[in-house]
C-alpha cells in the first residue's frame, strides 16, 4: 500500500513537472495522421501533418484550426471537420481520436478536449465516424442527417404543451423527471454509433424515445413513437446492438444503456401488446 502510494505520488509529481515544463517552454510538437477524403464517392487515405508549437491550453479543435491556417497559407486544402458551439452542447463536433470517439477523456466532447491530454511528440490518428449510415461528406465531416430523419419519425410531441411550466407544476416524481432529463441530455453527436462495433444507433434512439416515454406530455404517441423511430433507425442502415456497452463508455453525455433496455420494452410493448 505505502509503496503504491509512493509510486502514485511520484508519477503525479513527474506528470506535474512535465506539464510545468511544457507550460514554461510553452508548446508541444505533434504529428497528426488525418483521414482525407474528397467526398462520399471517392475513397480516402491518411495524410501526415506536423503540428508544431501547440499550446496545451488549446482545445483539440483550436489545434486543428492552427494546422488549417498553415495549410491555407500554403494554399493547400484545409482539413474539413464539424463543429459549432465549441461548448460541448450542440453535438456538432466529432472525430475518432486514437481509436476513441471524442478522444481519450471520458464525458467530454472533442471541442472540450484540451491538448494537455496529449504529450509532446505524440502521434495522433484522427478518423471520421465510420458507419454506412454516416457517409463522409469530406475528410472528417460526416452526414448525420440519418439522426434527423429518426427524430422526424417520432421524436416530438404533437399536443400543445403551453409555455414553460412553473417549477413543480407537472405531477411527476423527481426521480422520474431526473431520469427523463438525463436521457434528454443526449446531444445527438453520434459517438455511440462511432464507438459501437456494429455501428448501432440504439443509444441515441433509446435516449430520444426515453425522454418522452417517461413524461406525461409524451404519453399520447408513446408506442407509435417507439415503433416509428426504431423502424426508421433500421431503414437508415445502422447495425443492431449486441450489448457490448461501448456506447455508454464513450458517450460524452454519459447516456446509460438502461435507455436501450427501456427502448426494447417500449418497442416490444408497441409491437406485441399495445399496438
Amino acid at each position: 500500500m505505502r509503496r503504491e502510494r509512493l509510486e502514485l505520488a511520484k508519477s503525479q509529481i513527474s506528470n506535474l513537472t512535465s506539464q510545468i515544463k511544457i507550460r514554461m517552454s510553452g508548446n508541444m510538437n505533434l504529428t497528426l495522421k488525418v483521414w482525407r477524403q474528397k467526398n462520399s464517392s471517392t475513397s480516402g487515405k491518411f495524410v501526415t501533418y506536423k503540428a508544431p508549437g501547440i499550446s496545451p491550453d488549446m482545445s483539440f479543435l483550436e489545434m486543428l484550426d492552427v494546422v488549417n491556417e498553415d495549410l491555407v497559407k500554403k494554399s493547400e486544402d484545409p482539413i474539413q471537420f464539424d463543429h459549432d458551439c465549441r461548448e460541448g452542447i450542440c453535438g456538432m463536433c466529432s472525430l475518432v481520436i486514437n481509436g476513441e470517439p471524442h478522444g481519450p477523456k471520458r464525458a467530454t466532447t472533442t471541442c472540450q478536449l484540451h491538448m494537455r491530454s496529449f504529450k509532446d511528440g505524440d502521434t495522433i490518428v484522427i478518423e471520421p465516424w465510420r458507419a454506412a449510415a454516416f457517409p463522409v461528406v469530406k475528410d472528417l465531416a460526416v452526414d448525420r442527417s440519418a439522426f434527423d430523419r429518426i427524430q422526424q419519425a417520432g421524436g416530438y410531441v404533437s399536443i400543445g404543451t403551453g409555455g414553460v411550466p412553473d417549477a413543480n407544476e407537472i405531477a411527476i416524481p423527481k426521480v422520474i423527471a431526473d431520469e427523463a432529463f438525463n436521457s434528454a441530455t443526449c446531444i445527438g453527436c453520434g459517438a455511440c454509433v462511432a464507438a459501437c462495433k456494429n455501428a448501432s444507433a440504439m443509444l441515441f434512439v433509446s435516449a430520444k424515445i426515453s425522454q418522452y416515454a417517461m413524461l406525461p406530455q409524451g404519453q399520447p404517441e408513446r408506442y407509435a413513437r417507439a415503433e416509428a423511430m426504431v423502424l426508421q433507425m433500421d431503414d437508415e442502415g445502422f447495425g443492431s446492438c449486441t450489448n457490448t456497452y461501448a456506447c455508454e463508455a464513450q458517450c460524452p453525455k454519459e447516456i446509460k444503456v438502461t435507455n436501450i433496455a427501456r427502448m426494447n420494452r417500449e418497442f416490444f410493448n408497441a409491437e406485441f401488446i399495445k399496438g
Partner: peptide, 29 residues
C-alpha cells in the same frame, strides 16, 4: 444473419482499433 448485417453497417473499419472498455467475450460471441 445479424453479424452479416452488422458488418454492412460499418463497411470501412477504423485504422486504430477502438478502445471502448467492453469485455472481450461481448465482442467475440
Amino acid at each position: 444473419v445479424i453479424t452479416l448485417m452488422n458488418r454492412k453497417a460499418r463497411p470501412i473499419s477504423y485504422a486504430i482499433k477502438p478502445k471502448d472498455g467492453s469485455i472481450w467475450s461481448s465482442r467475440n460471441m
